[in-house]
Amino acid sequence: MNLPMRSKFGKAALGAAFVVMAATAAQAAEPVLISYEAAPSSGFELPKLDQATYAVRAAFALQALTDIVPKIAAAAGVPVSKMVSEVTPGGYLLKTNASLQTMADLDDEAADRFAASLGYVFRQYSVLISRLDDPSGQTDFVKVTFPRDKLDSAVAQAFFEKAASVDKGLGGGYTAFGDDQIFLNVTDSAGKPYSGLDHAAFLAGLEKAAAEFEPVKPTVSNNGKAVARFVENDWAAKPAGEDYIARLGGAGSDLVKKLDAIEADYAALVGAAATRYGWK
Rank of each mutant, 00 (worst) to 15 (best):
L94K: 10
I129Y: 04
A52W: 07
D50A: 14
F122N: 10
A76N: 10
L100M: 06
D134G: 06
L49C: 03
R57G: 15
F160K: 08
T88P: 11
A73S: 12
A58N: 15
G91T: 05
Y92G: 04
L132K: 02
D167W: 06
R113I: 02
D149S: 14
A111C: 09
D134C: 09
T88A: 08
S99D: 00
T139M: 14
A110R: 05
L151H: 09
L151V: 03
A75G: 00
L118P: 05
R113M: 10
D108K: 14
S85T: 14
D133R: 14
L100K: 02
L170P: 04
S85C: 15
F141Q: 05
D140Y: 01
S117C: 00
R113S: 05
L132D: 00
L118F: 10
A59I: 08
I129E: 10
R113T: 15
T139K: 05
G171V: 08
D152V: 15
A111L: 01
Y125A: 11
D167V: 12
L100T: 00
D140Q: 10
A73H: 07
T96E: 04
F60A: 08
T102N: 01
V121P: 00
A58D: 14
A74T: 14
I129A: 01
N97S: 15
A73E: 02
I72M: 09
T102K: 04
P135A: 10
R131V: 08
T102S: 06
V84C: 02
D108V: 14
G169K: 06
G119C: 09
V80I: 15
N97G: 11
P70S: 13
V127C: 10
A76Q: 11
A52N: 07
D149A: 09
V56W: 04
Y120E: 03
L118W: 06
S81Q: 11
D105E: 15
L170K: 11
Y125S: 13
V56D: 11
A55D: 13
S117R: 03
D105W: 11
P47S: 05
Y125P: 11
G119F: 01
D167P: 06
N97Y: 12
A76D: 10
A76Y: 01
I72K: 04
A64L: 09
L46N: 06
A55K: 13
K48E: 12
T88S: 15
A73M: 11
I72Q: 02
V155W: 04
A74N: 07
Q124C: 01
T102Y: 02
M103P: 03
A154L: 07
K82T: 09
L151C: 11
E86P: 02
